[in-house]
Nucleic acid binder design. Sequence first.
DNA 1: CGCAAACTTGATGTTGCTCAAGCTAGGTGG
DNA 2: CCACCTAGCTTGAGCAACATCAAGTTTGCG
Lengths: 238, 238
Amino acid sequence: MTAQVVSNTTAKFDIGGIVATRTLGGPATSHLMAVSTLQRKAPGETLFAEGDEAESVYEVVRGMLRLYKLLPDGRRLITGFLSAGHLLGLAPEGVCVYTAEAITEVTLCRYKRTAFERLIDEVPGFAKRLLAVTSHELSAAQNQMLLLGRKAATEKVASFLLLMAGQQGGDDDADTVEVPMTRSDIADYLGLTIETVSRTLTKLRQDGLIALPCPTRIEIHDHDRLQELAAGEGATDL
Amino acid sequence: MTAQVVSNTTAKFDIGGIVATRTLGGPATSHLMAVSTLQRKAPGETLFAEGDEAESVYEVVRGMLRLYKLLPDGRRLITGFLSAGHLLGLAPEGVCVYTAEAITEVTLCRYKRTAFERLIDEVPGFAKRLLAVTSHELSAAQNQMLLLGRKAATEKVASFLLLMAGQQGGDDDADTVEVPMTRSDIADYLGLTIETVSRTLTKLRQDGLIALPCPTRIEIHDHDRLQELAAGEGATDL
DNA sequence: CGCAAACTTGATGTTGCTCAAGCTAGGTGG
DNA sequence: CCACCTAGCTTGAGCAACATCAAGTTTGCG
């Protein structure tokens, strides 16, 4: 998978909590366990909203979230879809800069902000690991800026499909991708409209690059061609 | 200034070096001084390119840089303009994820990556400060995603003008803004074409919101109206 | 079975892009 | 000193991609 394609907003990087306790044995783990609580959210529920005071840091354990920002007239941009292992809620100035909502049923590991900050100060190497996670997210955000500002609709949709594929099958090319979010979510993530997303998927299907057994499931048939499209090499043979 | 408007890619946050040595007296300062070298770049010169091995971390002392990413066919997106105090080169995987070029004559403070990483490990609180800077950059990147994905041309240009104004006059509304970058740079920052940027500036001038004494200087005449446009409140009175 | 939400498809519209001239300013050499 | 030259900017005309508006269709659920 090339860097172009990886454009999820948060890096998948276990920092502690439930996921981490299974994969990491470091000193931070036990500290995190001590201050964490498990939480569930039903589809559509809000974790926190843009402008809220940032009281907690969360780690996604199961399910999928959307993060988004709104303009006053209701235009929405989804900055990222977060699945298991992703971290959210590290607000710069103590104020949430985006809204976080559950797409599916979600399980979260929640840390009190104050406790989390204490860990940053006290656990050696913890701040550095968070810095690595955040730097990675920043890089992903810059890839998404490139997508939003300079890619055409087909290139955007191809990028999205590969992102979903990469996020799921730990393997590079899981053929079948589950798409729990609506077309409206996809559109607001890619800076398009629902209709354009739908039309573009139809075109990709007609061209044999993908199949759509049902709206929430997409089969990738021509991974290479999708990759070319996503990278912006549509007219390779000029 | 509202959060909507602050959308520069890197937070202006002195971490050390020349700028910091004048504003901070903390322990990190002397450490940074010990491993830093001053460097100059002429307009158009490249600091490092996307894909390069990340060998150094830089802090801008004077002048302005552009950071950008390219698609294979040459489409460019500028992810940020960096002026004095901004930090760059903290690459996640040791590889630069964007190209950095001087717009004006630039003075930089350069740190060897290895030395910089040692400081992260050894100087207490240093990683935490970098985390704060990077989190702030991430938030700015998300604002820019909102701009690229959901704002109209006029709103984009208004946002850009206020960003420039805020970056310069430390005051909230410096009336006259120096714009050292070309229209092409502005276009590639906003996801537009040169022509659209030019036309939009002309329209803002005709409407009395700004004046353009020369292409590199912009006077802001109606700060409030610009702010409304930038925030996406163009049709407030419906 | 019926309802509502989500998705697809079609017809039309508009924003911003493309292509094509002119214009302006700053730098250079006759 | 001035005319030229070039790079960058502005302006105009036409066009294309995507948005909008408007039906239909499918899906999932009570």
